[in-house]
Amino acid sequence: MFWLYLDPGSGSFLLQLLIAGLAAISLAIGTQWARIKRFFNRKKARPTDDEDDE
């Protein structure tokens, strides 16, 4: 496979697949948590985080 020319190693590749379910759940929880925090902090200005450009 061409896109594998930078071989990530089977283990690195498979580890991601193994933690995929966990990762998706943690993202969902994180997103909900951020929404809750935003709800309670909506009067405060959001701090700017120059390390992440989101």
Binding site: L4, L14, L17, I19, A20, L22, A24, S26
Partner: peptide, 25 residues
């Protein structure tokens, strides 16, 4: 998994975009 062929070992597993975003975050 050293030396294991990925195509066989993954046994059809996929990683959704959300899962990858979860790993990045």
């Amino acid at each position: 998994y050293a030396g294991v062929a990925v195509t066989e070992a993954r046994t059809g597993r996929r990683m959704s975009r959300e899962a990858q975003l979860g790993v990045i975050e």
